[in-house]
Design a protein around this nucleic acid. Structure first.
Lengths: 190, 190
DNA sequence: TATATACTTGAGTGATCACTCAATAAAGCC
DNA sequence: GGCTTTATTGAGTGATCACTCAAGTATATA
């Protein structure tokens, strides 16, 4: 009996993610979204409920795909190989909406106001950090890095470096490839 | 003949800087500023012209004080000492409005829209990077680090690490002191 | 084909945005 | 004390914000 929506919900979430990723929460108005998603206000709210609800979906999509990409990389190159390759991949991602991490941008923009989305971004950042820690643990178990390191500490430092790298990669006067190479080189000294 | 303003302009700029630093550009409304600076709209615009003009003054104040602090630190501890101490100082700054770098936050928030303030933040970030490069050059000249390093490259990596550290320091589930210590330790291996 | 069910449309909601300006108050110089 | 000059005040500006809803339209089932 019912009528099917004319849009592809998954594709709309991906488009919204790209827009939010580039422009941030306050920087993306409903007019922007309506234009990009080709949705009138009524359809938008029928589909997603609110701007914040869609932002939450976009954050989740972003984090899920990030974790999936990293795990696929680890299956291909091994744990240390994945960790060493990730910085370069992030810098060279040519068709990404932005270089900087969407989770970090969201947290930086909204944490001062205790916005729910900041807490959500923080949760996803923790998930990513745990992912890094797992890879360091595996690398340790396989003897690729020394056993006298704390995987959690390595993961925190690695994530921090990656966040800095991705922020630097947005700037015109910084050679992010060099930084990525230096981060990877540091992993060889473990 | 004229009447003197009842406010201390320098103090107002510092207060505005703290507010903008914490809440960002879009996150700080004129109502917020009027409340914090205890200025009615008319006085505000007579004093500063616009929200953006005040933000620009705040950015400049932020960058100037940052450079001054670093140079003072270098006079006290020498170039390498300053570079090694800075990460810890940044993390331990208890009464700062935020841990993350205001220049980086501004650039991340506004660069997608090609806002003038993003360009201004980028300029100040370059200034800071040049400052770091100078310190690395001095450390090299004094034999504190090996001569086979490019000071510009070291500075870019160092600044990137620092930006990541300062972002990480805002999170509750990250031990930023450990990261700061690890960044400092890396400088000893140069 | 008739009907029930949902999707689409877009004008319109009150709230808040950055900002203006005419009226009022106060301070320095004669 | 009178006059000039500037600071302060706060109601008010149009624009934009996220969001609503009633009316119109299309589709799957009976």
């Amino acid at each position: 009996m019912p009528r099917k929506p004319a849009y592809d919900r998954d594709a709309l979430i991906a488009q919204a993610r790209d827009l939010f990723w580039r422009q941030g929460w306050a920087g993306t108005s409903l007019k922007d979204l309506e234009r990009a998603l080709k949705l009138k206000p009524g359809s938008f709210y029928a589909a997603f409920g609110s701007k914040d609800a869609l932002y939450a979906l976009a954050l989740e999509r972003y984090a899920d795909e990030g974790v999936a990409r990293l795990e696929a990389l680890a299956r291909e190159l091994g744990p240390l190989g994945a960790l060493k390759t990730q910085p370069r991949l992030v810098v060279e991602a040519a068709n990404a909406p932005a270089k900087a991490c969407m989770l970090a941008k969201t947290y930086a923009e909204l944490s001062a106001k205790n916005h729910d989305l900041a807490q959500l971004a923080a949760t996803h950042l923790s998930r990513m950090k745990a992912c890094f820690a797992d890879l360091f643990r595996q690398a340790q178990a396989q003897g690729q890095i020394g056993g006298d390191h704390d995987p959690e500490r390595l993961a925190a430092r690695y994530q921090s470096d990656l966040l800095g790298l991705r922020l630097s990669a947005e700037r015109g006067d910084v050679d992010a490839r060099q930084i990525a190479a230096d981060i990877a080189a540091d992993l060889d000294r473990l």
